Amino acid sequence: MRLRHHAVAALGALALVITLPTSASAAEGQFRYTYETDEGYEAVGFLNDPPSGECISLPGADSDALPPAYAPKNLTDATATVFLGADCEGDVYYTLRPGGGASERLKVRSVVFS
């Protein structure tokens, strides 16, 4: 009888583990960048704990009608690949290590974290 209770409990625990949703992986930390507002002011944008493996077009610099963002700082624990093109397109990109940054000469519109 005890064996049956243990087997049922073990099966129930296994079912819970299998059905629990897994959390999406995310880079922990903050990604910062500087961009120019519509009024011509300099502003700082940031992404907190951004998702990994998903392209993110940077708000404030995400279209060709806007100037690209610049001076990205990768303060996350993941590698960030920044692109000059929106939607992580084009062959102009640069990789920032965790904790790394670039000067204002580096222009960006989108980023993906690994």
Rank of each mutant, 00 (worst) to 15 (best):
residue 5 H to L: 15
residue 5 H to I: 13
residue 6 H to C: 09
residue 8 V to G: 03
residue 8 V to R: 12
residue 10 A to W: 05
residue 10 A to H: 10
residue 10 A to Q: 09
residue 11 L to A: 15
residue 12 G to D: 06
residue 12 G to V: 11
residue 12 G to K: 07
residue 13 A to L: 15
residue 13 A to M: 15
residue 13 A to Y: 11
residue 15 A to E: 10
residue 18 I to L: 15
residue 18 I to Q: 11
residue 18 I to D: 01
residue 19 T to H: 08
residue 19 T to I: 15
residue 19 T to Q: 14
residue 19 T to E: 13
residue 19 T to F: 14
residue 20 L to A: 15
residue 20 L to D: 02
residue 22 T to W: 14
residue 23 S to Y: 08
residue 24 A to G: 06
residue 25 S to Q: 14
residue 25 S to C: 08
residue 26 A to S: 13
residue 26 A to C: 08
residue 26 A to D: 06
residue 27 A to D: 06
residue 27 A to N: 09
residue 27 A to H: 04
residue 28 E to L: 05
residue 28 E to K: 12
residue 29 G to Q: 04
residue 30 Q to K: 10
residue 30 Q to G: 02
residue 30 Q to T: 14
residue 30 Q to P: 00
residue 31 F to L: 01
residue 32 R to K: 12
residue 32 R to E: 09
residue 32 R to L: 14
residue 33 Y to V: 13
residue 34 T to A: 13
residue 34 T to C: 07
residue 35 Y to R: 11
residue 35 Y to I: 02
residue 35 Y to V: 01
residue 36 E to A: 11
residue 37 T to H: 07
residue 37 T to A: 04
residue 37 T to N: 06
residue 38 D to Q: 14
residue 38 D to W: 07
residue 38 D to E: 15
residue 40 G to V: 08
residue 41 Y to Q: 13
residue 43 A to M: 08
residue 44 V to I: 14
residue 44 V to A: 08
residue 44 V to E: 10
residue 46 F to C: 09
residue 48 N to D: 15
residue 49 D to F: 11
residue 51 P to F: 02
residue 51 P to M: 00
residue 52 S to Q: 13
residue 53 G to R: 04
residue 53 G to H: 09
residue 53 G to E: 06
residue 54 E to F: 10
residue 55 C to N: 05
residue 56 I to M: 07
residue 56 I to D: 00
residue 56 I to C: 03
residue 56 I to W: 02
residue 57 S to L: 01
residue 60 G to Q: 05
residue 60 G to V: 08
residue 61 A to C: 13
residue 61 A to E: 01
residue 62 D to I: 02
residue 62 D to H: 14
residue 65 A to V: 13
residue 69 A to I: 00
residue 69 A to V: 03
residue 70 Y to C: 09
residue 70 Y to W: 03
residue 70 Y to P: 01
residue 70 Y to I: 00
residue 70 Y to D: 02
residue 70 Y to Q: 06
residue 71 A to R: 11
residue 73 K to H: 10
residue 73 K to E: 12
residue 74 N to R: 00
residue 75 L to S: 10
residue 76 T to R: 03
residue 76 T to H: 03
residue 78 A to H: 08
residue 78 A to W: 09
residue 78 A to C: 10
residue 80 A to G: 05
residue 80 A to W: 00
residue 81 T to W: 01
residue 81 T to N: 04
residue 82 V to C: 03
residue 82 V to N: 00
residue 84 L to N: 02
residue 84 L to R: 03
residue 84 L to A: 12
residue 87 D to Q: 09
residue 87 D to M: 08
residue 88 C to W: 01
residue 88 C to N: 05
residue 90 G to M: 10
residue 90 G to E: 00
residue 90 G to N: 01
residue 91 D to N: 12
residue 92 V to P: 03
residue 93 Y to C: 02
residue 93 Y to M: 03
residue 94 Y to W: 10
residue 95 T to Y: 06
residue 95 T to F: 02
residue 96 L to K: 07
residue 96 L to N: 04
residue 97 R to K: 13
residue 97 R to Q: 14
residue 97 R to M: 13
residue 98 P to V: 10
residue 98 P to Q: 01
